[in-house]
Design a binder for these strands. Structure first.
Lengths: 342, 342
DNA sequence: TTGTAGGCGTTATCAC
DNA sequence: GTGATAACGCCTACAA
């Protein structure tokens, strides 16, 4: 093969001995063109190395068959998983995905959305940053994933955060734990707010509102560790629930510094799974997000929006899975409870 | 704001009270248009919510100012870091990046490259899969990253694998270790092959060829663990060097199963860092890839290729960093050495 | 079933 | 410094 100028559909038509219209229809698998002729065109395309120009096609068709996916951070396993699963779901439908990273920065997020829009994507799925200003009105469907907001009337898909926390709390409670802390880095994220709310409600429903404590800090694992460390000097929970991957990292660090080991000194249960959590010793018990389901639901919702069906379901919440590993155990030496009345 | 039809540059020109040509030039920051007029156009654009159509621009300009990045797997921290860093480097130059995932599958890889090409990217950076058949000749610059191959005469950027292994070996040797194993999952990847070669050479240079052992398995951490587990029943290294992130995961699992703890029973040094390796107890000593440098070098090389400068440097190898943490320690109870002569 | 003309939104090339 | 016009490659009518 030789390096040569880019081939157009005219070259293809000529090579296949048909008109451009036929060539176009053949490549698009239109039923209006006979099978053997289509094969001839396909073969010719492979022969001469023809590659269609998606720019020209999209321009003409006024649709790129492309969906934009906006995630905060590639490095976070939850988001990279989400990207992977969404990719798979979308590709199966013959669409393409454009993945962009906002780096938790609202300004950059805005730029990336503009870039997607400029590329004429047919729809956008977004995990918004804390500074997200809402959708400046584009005329493409937009779905919010994971970080849902009460204030935005946009269609959304996420794990049922309240249910996840209740599931976690109940699991710890069943193991005998009463003095339970939650470590969270809420920032301005609704997501974490929902988890904290769920936590408090779960505690309340068990009549444990007083023995429960929330350590809320920034997004940085180091700071989380420091904050939790300080709290651990003044009290000692029998179980800790970390609200997400970052919080789990910070919690682990704090526990080490404090010389506490799980599950002996304290049980640890984390929301959000990661590969290493199963390898770590002790392996970390987790509430795992239904990532594939979230991706599939987001895509399903997008399909509806694209077809203009405007179905009823505008908010989907999926249930997580509890995976008990080594970091959680039964309460060993239950101390006398005090102060359950205040 | 209201939902409305997509605005074209004609709408912008009209709103700004200029001709389309001027509007175009103004948006492109051409010096031929006066500053205040440019501002007027910009303001009008913001006012009416004009967003340029990248498809049309790319079609006409015959250049999309877009680079494709092809990585095997979002979930691998090395690749997600690479994507992030490459993104940053490219964006600073005013280009865009299209990131696609090949899922370690040559067929899918081929599809994704075709998709990038169809989107008229100006260049492609790729971390090839094991089944990569080489570049079917496209007329855009292509740079191979990380997984370089002797057989392909393509420009490439990667860590200096041999140097990385030598660095690791020397570090272990300096700690008194002689009976050193390497755990690797080569598959058909040149990368791993290079690391194994480097390992053997390093051993040789220390006159340790006989005390050195390579455990080579598949890409699956479970299998790696199993394979290493079997090997550990028959011999006991004083130090283990894992060749990449996956191998490290497998090694950790195998060590747990065997009841070996680092650095007491065996020292562990890993190639490829990850966030959790610094949180794990013991934290894992690593040879960290110069990810940002690799990304920057790849982009720099791409810039040269794009400008047609065709500079001399076609293969860049960057040096890694050694980070000694807790998993490595001095050899405690040195056993008598035997068999150093064969 | 096949061939042909027109236009998608933009930029580059011209005259002014 | 500014305004009209052609062309980028493709798809979709419509005519044959």
């Amino acid at each position: 093969m030789m390096k040569r100028a880019r081939l157009t559909i005219r070259d293809l038509a000529q090579a296949a001995g048909v008109s451009v219209g036929t060539a176009s229809n053949a490549m698009a698998l239109k039923p209006s063109v006979s099978v053997d002729l289509r094969d001839r065109v396909m073969r010719a395309a492979a022969e001469i190395g023809y590659s269609p120009n998606a720019l020209a096609a999209g321009l003409r068709r006024q649709s790129t068959r492309t969906i934009g996916l906006c995630i905060p951070n590639f490095a976070n396993p939850f988001f990279s998983d989400l990207a992977q699963q969404f990719n798979i779901a979308v590709e199966q439908a013959g669409y393409d995905v454009l993945i962009v990273e906002t780096r938790e920065n609202a300004g950059h997020e805005r730029k990336m959305i503009d870039a997607l829009y400029s590329r004429q994507v047919d729809g956008i799925c977004i995990v918004p940053t804390a500074g997200w200003q809402g959708a400046h009105v584009y005329e493409v469907p937009l779905i919010v994933v994971d970080r849902i907001r009460q204030t935005e009337p946009l269609p959304s898909v996420a794990m049922d955060n309240a249910a996840a926390v209740v599931m976690a709390f109940d699991a710890l409670h069943a193991l005998g734990h009463r003095n339970i802390w939650m470590v969270v880095n809420s920032g301005a994220l609704w997501n974490s707010t929902l988890r904290v709310e769920g936590f408090r409600r779960a505690a309340q429903s068990h009549g444990l509102s007083d023995q429960v404590h929330v350590v809320d800090t920034s997004m940085d694992p180091q700071e989380i560790a420091a904050e939790l460390g300080r709290a651990l000097e003044q009290g000692s929970p029998s179980a800790i629930l970390s609200a997400n991957g970052l919080a789990t990292l910070g919690t682990l660090r704090a526990l080490q510094v404090a010389g506490l080991s799980a599950p002996r000194d304290v049980s640890l249960l984390a929301i959000d799974d990661a590969v290493w959590m199963d390898v770590l010793r002790p392996s970390i018990s987790v509430v795992r997000q239904p990532v594939a389901d979230i991706a599939a639901a987001a895509w399903a919702m997008m399909v509806n929006l694209l077809s203009g069906t405007e179905v009823g379901t505008r908010h989907v919440e999926l249930l997580p899975t509890l995976i008990l590993r080594e970091s959680t155990g039964e309460l060993r030496s239950p101390r006398p409870r005090y102060g359950t009345t205040g």
